[in-house]
Simulated assay, not measured.
Amino acid sequence: MSSTRRTATTAGVFFLVAAAASIPALGLFQPVLGDAEYVLGAGSDGRVLLGALLEIVTVVAVVGTGVALYPVVRRENHTAALGYALGRLMEGALIALGLVAVLAVVSLRQDAGGSDDGALVVVQEALVAVKDWTFLLGPNVALGVNTLLLAGLMYRSGLVSRWIAVLGLVGGPLILASGIAVLLGAYEQVSVVGTLAALPVFAWEMSLAVHLVVRGFRPTAALGAPPVRPAAPVG
């Protein structure tokens, strides 16, 4: 297996792992995110900590896609490729910040003996608000920009099938616009509209991941072959 083929497979696996870990992690966090008085009850710390483990895997996978793809996509546009790699790093950092906020709620509940109940609830609400904001700015706003960068690189370079790149060029701006709409209070992020806005970018990532794992990069594009030009007329 060539190094370019290994790069494609690695990047595809990272995309798949990120999706497989992030979706159940959000569900496992619900005892903290959905119960305003989690810090006062018996808690479901084991469930939340399992979600935290999956979220760590998500962060590694998100950053891994940027690192894995950078050596290949920089051949098309170094600035855009660097922007994508750094953007994925920022996206991972935002996810990690939200994870720390959730873990802080767990610690608060475990060490809450003798504390004022009202103060505990207020602190939990603040930490959950941090998690909500990072969830918006990471898997919505930052994801939209990163998708647009990578899809543009894939479209111009021809590294994958053109329809996959077009799907990203549609999904990226859509999830970004949805994130801005949520920021302005148009609707909730976890809602029917928010979910529908996220479907194209999810389809983009899964299509790209499967293509990279099964087929890899298109050979001539991956090798950086120059376009074929007609021969100059003789005489």
Rank of each mutant, 00 (worst) to 15 (best):
L94C: 06
T79H: 05
V121M: 02
S2M: 04
A151L: 03
N146W: 00
Y187R: 02
E205M: 06
A101N: 10
I95L: 02
V160W: 03
T58L: 02
A197S: 08
A8G: 13
A81H: 09
P24S: 09
V192R: 01
D45W: 01
S161R: 10
A126N: 11
T134P: 03
S157K: 07
A61Y: 03
P230I: 02
S3Q: 15
A209D: 14
R109Q: 14
I175A: 05
A25E: 10
R75W: 06
P200M: 02
A96W: 07
V32R: 00
G43N: 08
V57Q: 01
L149Y: 07
G118D: 11
L167G: 09
N77L: 06
T58W: 01
I175K: 03
D35A: 10
L184A: 12
L148A: 14
G185M: 06
A25D: 08
V234G: 02
F15G: 04
V48K: 00
D132A: 12
A42Q: 13
Q30M: 07
L148C: 08
G216N: 07
A52P: 10
V160P: 13
T79A: 10
L136F: 07
E125R: 10
S191R: 01
V130R: 00
A93Y: 02
L50D: 12
D111W: 08
G34L: 00
S2Y: 04
M206E: 11
A203V: 13
R229D: 14
G158W: 08
T134A: 01
V201E: 03
S44G: 04
V63D: 01
E188R: 09
H78Y: 11
E76V: 15
V106R: 01
V32P: 10
G27C: 05
V121K: 01
L28W: 03
N77T: 07
F202T: 13
A93P: 11
L120S: 12
D116W: 05
D111E: 13
L97F: 14
R75L: 11
R109E: 12
G185H: 06
H211F: 09
F14L: 12
R74G: 14
S115Y: 08
D132R: 09
S44A: 11
M90I: 15
V182Q: 03
G46K: 00
V121N: 06
V67I: 15
L28K: 02
V123Y: 00
P24W: 07
P173M: 03
V73N: 09
Y84M: 04
E55N: 09
T65A: 00
E125D: 15
N77K: 05
R162P: 15
A197C: 09
A222V: 11
V60G: 02
L69Q: 14
L26N: 12
L50N: 08
R156T: 15
A42N: 13
V102C: 04
S207H: 06
G118L: 06
S22M: 03
E55D: 13
S178P: 07
G12E: 10
T134C: 06
L97I: 15
F14H: 08
G118E: 09
S2Q: 05
G92I: 11
E76I: 15
I164Y: 04
G185E: 11
T195I: 06
A129K: 09
E205I: 08
V100N: 03
E205W: 04
L159R: 08
V62L: 00
V102R: 00
V160Q: 08
T65H: 00
V123T: 14
G172E: 07
A19I: 13
V72H: 05
V106C: 07
S191Y: 05
L49F: 04
P173E: 10
L40V: 11
